[in-house]
Design a protein around this nucleic acid. Sequence first.
DNA 1: CTGCTTCGGTAACAAACGTTACGGTAACAT
DNA 2: ATGTTACCGTAACGTTTGTTACCGAAGCAG
Lengths: 202, 202
Amino acid sequence: MSLPADRSAQGEALSRAVWAVLAHQGLEKLTVRAVAAAAGCTTGLVMHRFPNRRALLLHARQLLHDTTRQRVEELEAAATSPRAALRAVLRQGMAIDPETTNWSIVWLGFLAAAVADAELIGMHRRNNRAWRQRVERLVAAAAPDWPVDQVGAVALGLIAMTEGVAALAAADPAAYPADQQERMLDAALVAYGLGCSGSGRS
Amino acid sequence: MSLPADRSAQGEALSRAVWAVLAHQGLEKLTVRAVAAAAGCTTGLVMHRFPNRRALLLHARQLLHDTTRQRVEELEAAATSPRAALRAVLRQGMAIDPETTNWSIVWLGFLAAAVADAELIGMHRRNNRAWRQRVERLVAAAAPDWPVDQVGAVALGLIAMTEGVAALAAADPAAYPADQQERMLDAALVAYGLGCSGSGRS
DNA sequence: CTGCTTCGGTAACAAACGTTACGGTAACAT
DNA sequence: ATGTTACCGTAACGTTTGTTACCGAAGCAG
C-alpha cells in the first residue's frame, strides 16, 4: 500500500486511514501510530502532513462531510421525482450495506470524540444543520401544500429515524437487516403521506 | 465528596463517576485517574473495587441499563392507557432535559467504546434487543388489530426516531429543543395512527 | 560533481496511561 | 493490650501516547 505522491491526496489518504481505524479499532485506539500503520507509512509522514493529531482528525471529519454531501447531491440530481429524491437521500443515511455501515460507525466515533472538542462539535453542528435544511427542503418539495411547522416536524422525524437506525444497525447488524430498515422507512413515508410509487411496496 | 461505606454502593458511585466523566470529558479522557477524581477518591480505591479498567466500564454500562429499565417500568406502570404508556416510554428516550441529555451522551460514549470491545457490544445488543421488544409489546398493546410486521416496522421507526433525536439533541441542544422533539414524536404517533389524547396537541 | 532543498523515516523525548506493590490506619477479635 | 484483617492512599513500575529533533535519500540547479 503506497501513498500517492500528490500532497493533498496524501492528506485524503490519511483521512481515509483515520476512518478505517475508527471503524475497525474504535476511538480509543485512534492513535497517530495506528493511523500511520493503516495508511502504510510511519508517524513521520503523518506529522509532516498535519501539525498535530487534532488537525488530522478535523481534516478527516470535514472530508467525511464533504464526501457524503457530494454523494447526496448526486442522488438528489438523479431522482425522477421530489418524493423519490427524498427517499433516496434518506436511504443512504441508513446502514444498509457494509459501506454505509462503516460510515455510521465512523460518524458515531466522531460524535463521541466531539464531546470534549469544541471545534469538532462546531463542525458537527454546522454539517448537521445543513443536512437538516436539505431534508426540510426535500420534504417541502414532496408536499408543497404543507404548513411550515408540519414540514419541520416531519423532516425532523425522518432525520432522527434514519440517523437512529443507522446507529442501531451499525452496532447490531444481525438484528437490523437492510430490508427491515427499508420497510421502516417506507412505512414512515407512507404514514406521513409522503409515500412514493416505485419503491416496491404492496 | 465522601464515598459510601457499603461496598456495592461504592461500585455504584464509581459507575456514576464513569458517567460523569463520559458526559463532560468524553471517551478519550475516560481514564482511571479521571474517574477517581470525579468520585473524590484515588486510583487505589478504584483498582481495589474493580480488577481493571474494563471491569469498571462494564459495570457502569450494565448499571446504566438497569437504571433506565427501572425508570421505564415505573413510567409504564403509571400510565393510564396503552398509548399513553407508549408515548411516556418513548419520551424518556429522547434528550428533553439536562438529565436525559446527559444520558444520551453517556449512551453514545459507551456505543463508541463498544466498537472495539466484544463484551461491551454484547451488552449493548442484549439491552437494545430487550428495549426493542418492550416497544414492540407496547405498540401491539396500543394497536391490537395490527399484523405483526406492521407492529415491527412501526416500533422500529419509533425506536430509531427517539434514539436518533436523542443523539442529535445531545450534540446540538440549541437546534433541537425539547418542544420540537415532543412535536416530532406526537406527529409520528398521529401519523402512525397511535396518537393519544391528553398530549396537548391540537 | 557539488550544493541545496524537499521529503519522509528513525529515534528519542516528556507526559500520561493502566496496573502493581507497599505501607499505614482503623476496626475487630481474643 | 495485642495480633489480625480489611481497607485505601502513595508511590512506583513498564508501556503507550503525542510530539520533536535528527538524519539519510532523492530530485534539481549550477
